[in-house]
Amino acid sequence: MAFEGKTVLITGGGSGMGRLAARNLAAAGKDVAIFDVNPEGLAETATGHTGIHHWVVDITDENAVHQAVKEVEEKLGPIDRLYNCAAIMPFGKILEHDAGVMKKMMEINYNGLIHITQAVLPGMVARGKGDFISFASMAGLLPTMLTGGYSATKAAVAMFTEILYHENINSGVRFACVCPPTTNTPLLNQGKETAWPKMLDQGTLLDPQDVLDAIDKGLEKGKFWIFPNRDSRIGYLMRRFAPGLIWKQVHQVEGF
């Protein structure tokens, strides 16, 4: 494992990618703090893992985030690695999608990142070390229809994290912006229960462990952008050099 630190903080640790990362790191002997709004999910993640400590935290509440981070550092010590996994993913046509739902997505997926960044990163920069990991998505780089609200939040995450990295490029902190394609986590159910794009059935469903492994490999190689498989790397290049072809395929697949 590339990570040699002691203390990890994971937002969205009550399920999915956050849960898997927490259990992996606890099994490796790390002290892991997990944040989520779901107390049952937090407890389930921690079951059988004495190294996992959980806090019920609403990532959209700036004061609550700062207070919880303070408690983590008082209990476990300085945070050496941060995974920002907290997100929701309901889909829908923009003109048909509830405005409140889209605003809530931005509150959690993007504003939550702002809060956790300002609570955790200054300490890493002051110590001159740490790993800062943002979860964007290929949905934030490679557009398709029916994902407008969600894709906008992940585009914001990607841009925010890229600028953050360059503003702190000589700080000693390692940054990674992870852009997974469709990955087999419970988050997919939110999309499937709302308006699932046919385009998301075109590629291979990625295993979440492959995403986490790609993060460690990328950090060791000094990579900022983490594209966990061949499809995501090709998608990134297509978006840069042939955006018209992408949209042509989207319209053909979706049928409108």
Results as ranks from 00 to 15, higher is better:
Tyr165His: 14
Met105Ile: 14
Cys177Tyr: 06
Pro197Gln: 08
Val178Ser: 03
Asn24Val: 06
Phe256Asp: 01
Val56Ser: 13
Ile215Tyr: 08
Ile10Cys: 03
Met159Ser: 14
Val211Glu: 07
Gly218His: 01
Phe160Tyr: 05
Gly130Phe: 12
Val56Pro: 09
Asn109Glu: 05
Asn109Leu: 02
Ala155Trp: 13
Ile59Trp: 00
Glu44Ser: 08
Lys104Ala: 07
His49Tyr: 15
Gly218Lys: 02
Pro186Trp: 09
Thr60Cys: 09
Ile226Val: 14
Thr47Lys: 15
Leu9Phe: 08
Ala26Leu: 06
Gly12Thr: 07
Leu187Ser: 02
Leu121Pro: 04
Asp201Glu: 13
Thr60Gln: 07
Thr204Val: 08
Phe241Cys: 11
Glu254Tyr: 04
Ala46Pro: 01
Glu73Ile: 02
Asn184Val: 00
Ala33Leu: 12
Cys177Gly: 07
His115Met: 10
Thr204Ile: 05
Gly255Tyr: 07
Gln249Ser: 15
Pro122Lys: 07
Asn38Glu: 13
Arg233Asp: 03
Gly14Glu: 10
Gln252Pro: 00
Asn189Lys: 14
Glu74Gly: 15
His166Trp: 11
Met138Arg: 04
Arg127Trp: 10
Thr194Val: 11
Ile234Asn: 01
Lys223His: 01
Phe160Pro: 03
Ala86Gln: 03
Ala99Glu: 14
Met102Val: 00
Leu121Trp: 04
Gly203Trp: 01
Gly172His: 04
Glu167Met: 14
Ala28Arg: 11
Glu220Tyr: 11
Thr45Pro: 05
Asp61Trp: 06
Asn168Ala: 02
Thr185Ile: 07
Leu206Phe: 12
Asp216Gln: 13
Glu220Lys: 15
Asp210Thr: 13
Lys248Trp: 00
Lys221Ala: 15
Pro90Lys: 02
His54Tyr: 13
Lys217Arg: 14
His49Arg: 04
Ala68Tyr: 10
Ala156Asn: 10
Thr7Asn: 13
Thr161Ile: 05
Gly13Tyr: 12
Ala33Gly: 13
Asp213Leu: 04
Phe175Met: 12
Met138Leu: 02
Gln202Asn: 06
His115Asn: 15
Asp36His: 01
Asn168Cys: 02
Met124Trp: 07
Trp225Asn: 11
Arg230Ser: 12
Val173Asp: 09
Ile10His: 03
Ile226Pro: 00
Gln249Phe: 07
Pro143Met: 11
Val72Lys: 10
Leu95Val: 12
Lys30Cys: 07
Thr60Leu: 06
